[in-house]
Amino acid sequence: MKNLLVILAIVLIALPVFAQKGNQLTCSGSTTVLPIAQAAAEAFMEKYPEVNISVRGGGSGVGVAALQNGTVDVALSSRPMKSKEISACKSKGINPVAYAVANDGIAIVVHKNNKLSNITVAQIRDIYTGKIKNWNQVGGANMPIVIISRDVASGTFEVFNEKALKGAKVDGGAQMLASNNSIVTTVGTTPGAIGYVGLGYVTDQVNIVPVESVVPSEATVKNKSYKLARQLYMYTNGKAKGNASRYISFLQSAEGQKIVKSQGFITLD
């Protein structure tokens, strides 16, 4: 019993001791949200030079796990947190609160020379599960399809899997890449390739293919007529406070939403 009291005393002594965090704010997670977070951080630090914001990628899962482990202030995620992740956070005393910071559409991209004018969700699923292997099966040229996908730890993959693949397994021959940039680069240099990226990553290297005859745009993403629309999030432990609150509020403000637009993503309003 005496020993028990010693342990309890240690706990009680330590309880009120909390370190003061300075003007440092750390963010990590989704590579899709990364350019928005970085551009917003630069603008924010220009406005408030006393604040230092560090932003890292790694993927939505990495950001959520880091929030759970208490090592970041803001987790970037291109998908909503899962029940399992929320439960793990809460049991460790972390209360994840979501802030939507942008809208996005997952664009289906093909090589510049591929003039495919439309694709259905069912065709996307059949291509990614290996049932359709040639572009001529979906109205394109006679050319083998090269499947390019994000790795399964990616939030973009998870949303794509849920909305397009309906949980089906990606064909074993697919190239699983770790970033949006590498998807665009690979698709842009591979004539038969198909890939998917957040709208902000689409460049002139690739063509966007309308899904169910709907082109991903501000209007179609906002009214959700584009089937692969989603929101992008920042998560904090509890309601955002201090610099995290100021930073997220800045990003959600008209000034911050201009940054969202400048990065190729779609604003919240």
Binding site: S83, S87, C89, P96
Partner: peptide, 10 residues
Amino acid sequence: NGFIPHGLGE
């Protein structure tokens, strides 16, 4: 086995 929605438990 599973998780209760909204992170309420397992």
